[in-house]
């Protein structure tokens, strides 16, 4: 490529310009379809949500302008603080733990002469292709009083620990959290494993010659190359923690009481059980802003390190 650019012949250059113009036009064509989908199903609804957040609306009648009243009501909602607090706690399960676990696994499977664990990687990725609602229902069965987890505990002689997990004020939230780890670890591993493949083998060899063990190799060679992937994985999983809805709704509905309530469930309740669409939209906007702030922090941290 570099030698192509350095070639001075003007006609060739013009030809290249034309062809690259044509190529970029084709590129736009390819982009048009996803862009149209994104606009219609993501962008427009989002803009409309912002618009609706400034109205009182029950979903069918006439809208009444509400100014910032919906926002005031949402911010004063005593459940919101609990819900947002849960979101941050969920980030430990959806984001922090999966990233750490996936990094550890990456350390095991990368570098020269390491097993590639293709099958295990594929299995770990499976949760990504399952619909979240199916995941929720499946884990509900696993956590049931006579479900797999309690049965397994009894088999290993820990029957005393067995309990109806999702009915427990203490454990329901963590039970949902564990599902989060299960869901996102495979995704993080996919990011990191592909990132680790771009690390030149010579670096590992050099580290080995310098007497660096496996752990040292991971710390000094693999990890620095994964900065970008870590930021991306953290961002994607943090968003899934903050906007969690389906798995929580299916597994606990936010309960028992409000012990596992998250903003997503609150939005649903406001919009579809009390028909306060304006207020639900305001909460959705607040949630979007929260996500934006967190992602910005991640990007900033990622950039500083880079």
């Amino acid at each position: 490529m570099a030698s192509d650019v350095a070639r001075p012949a003007p006609p060739a250059r013009r030809a290249r310009g034309r062809s690259s113009q044509r190529r970029s036009r084709v590129a736009y064509l390819y982009l048009a379809l996803p862009l149209a989908f994104y606009s219609v199903f993501m962008l427009l609804p989002w803009i409309q949500t912002i618009f609706l957040s400034f109205y009182h609306w029950d979903g069918i009648g006439a809208r009444q302008p509400a100014g910032i009243q919906n926002y005031l009501a949402v911010l004063q909602n005593p459940q919101l603080r609990t819900a947002i607090q849960h979101s941050f706690e969920l980030m430990i399960f959806f984001c922090v733990l999966p990233v750490l676990i996936a990094l550890a696994m990456t350390g095991l499977i990368t570098g020269p002469r390491r097993p590639r664990w293709h099958l295990i990687r594929a299995i770990l990725f499976v949760p990504q292709i399952l619909p979240p609602v199916a995941i929720g229902v499946m884990w509900q069965w696993m956590y049931a009083p006579d479900g797999f987890i309690n049965q397994a505990l009894k088999w290993v002689g820990l029957g005393g620990v067995a309990r109806p997990w999702l009915a427990s004020f203490t454990w329901a939230f963590y039970a949902v959290g564990v599902v989060g780890v299960w869901v996102t670890t495979g995704l993080c591993l996919a990011f990191f494993a592909s990132g680790a493949q771009k690390v030149p083998m010579e670096l590992y060899e050099a580290a080995e010659i310098d007497g660096g063990g496996r752990f040292r190799q991971f710390l000094s060679v693999t990890l620095p190359h994964l900065r970008g992937e870590i930021v991306i994985a953290a961002t994607v999983t943090a968003i899934s923690a903050l906007s969690a809805f389906d798995i929580v709704y299916v597994m606990t509905g936010g309960g028992p009481g409000t012990t596992s309530i998250v903003p997503g469930v609150l939005v649903y309740q406001l919009g579809f059980t009390t028909f306060q669409v304006g207020r639900a939209s305001a909460l959705a906007v607040v949630l979007s802003l929260l996500v934006l702030v967190i992602i910005s922090v991640f990007r900033l941290v990622g950039r500083e390190r880079a």
Binding site: P45, W46, Q48, D246, F272
Partner: peptide, 9 residues
């Protein structure tokens, strides 16, 4: 949950 997947607006 499928219903809810549809954006409010």
């Amino acid at each position: 949950a499928l219903t809810a997947g549809v954006s409010l607006s």
